[in-house]
Nucleic acid binder design. Sequence first.
DNA 1: ATCTAAATTTGTAATCATTACAAAAATATA
DNA 2: TATATTTTTGTAATGATTACAAATTTAGAT
Lengths: 133, 133
Amino acid sequence: MNIAHHLSEHDIKPSYQRIKIYEYLYKEMNHPTVDTIYKKLVGEIPTLSKTTVYNTLKLFIDKGITSTVTIEDNEVRYDAIVDAHGHFKCISCGAIYDIKYDFKDVAMNELKGFEVKETQVHVKGKCNQCLTK
Amino acid sequence: MNIAHHLSEHDIKPSYQRIKIYEYLYKEMNHPTVDTIYKKLVGEIPTLSKTTVYNTLKLFIDKGITSTVTIEDNEVRYDAIVDAHGHFKCISCGAIYDIKYDFKDVAMNELKGFEVKETQVHVKGKCNQCLTK
DNA sequence: ATCTAAATTTGTAATCATTACAAAAATATA
DNA sequence: TATATTTTTGTAATGATTACAAATTTAGAT
Ligand SMILES: [Mn+2]
Ligand SMILES: [Mn+2]
Ligand SMILES: [Zn+2]
Ligand SMILES: [Zn+2]
């Protein structure tokens, strides 16, 4: 996909920094923290400011092309996928896996009469790779 | 229930502060933040330190009689219920409701071969009360 | 009851992620 | 080119949490 075009389509001017940040999110698909993004990109863009990473991600979220994942109390992660899906975090290697779930199963009877806007499913445990090692 | 006894059973010496903090969690069932607990209890215990609230909650979690709920990036909430259950947060009034879910529905096929230790389900939207107003 | 050691609580300082803000740089418009 | 607007940057401020050591309380021994 053409990232500059994707940004433009969502009312975001495709500056160099914005393209690089979105490209990182989209290609790596690793649910990075702000710090991970910054540390990786500052190699390519030596003048990059961490504030720009924060600002840009906030803009992406406002415009609906990025979502946040808060599995742990103390770290916010970012995701180029905005459709509803869950996450599994391995407590051994730290990797985060995307998981699909059937929304109907999670939107429970008890919520009759409630208007559901957003559902987050977070699972923690040990991943296949770590278990077979 | 006898709170002092409950704490003792879980290897926690029932000091005055610990009893009050657990009593607040258990009786209010409101998923409070550290600050909410502190502000409420400092009336009864004028010498209370916020550090004590942090220390005590960490101890409760270690000993397995309290859990945390992280629906929002920027606030950790505490819960005297430790059995698996989900939470609904109303974006209008801020109230947090407990919701039951069928664990089988959420532990998906994709996680075959993974060892699941913990599942969190967070739903956001508008609650019944706010909608009918 | 008194002494001593251990546990708990407290207050302050340090840390760390995030936000606020204004100057600098880049980009668009005339 | 000159000017206005947008974006980026660096630094300072904020706020939640943690580290740490002193003060207080509790428990056990004499
Ligand atoms: Mn994802
Ligand atoms: Mn709950
Ligand atoms: Zn793993
Ligand atoms: Zn409500």
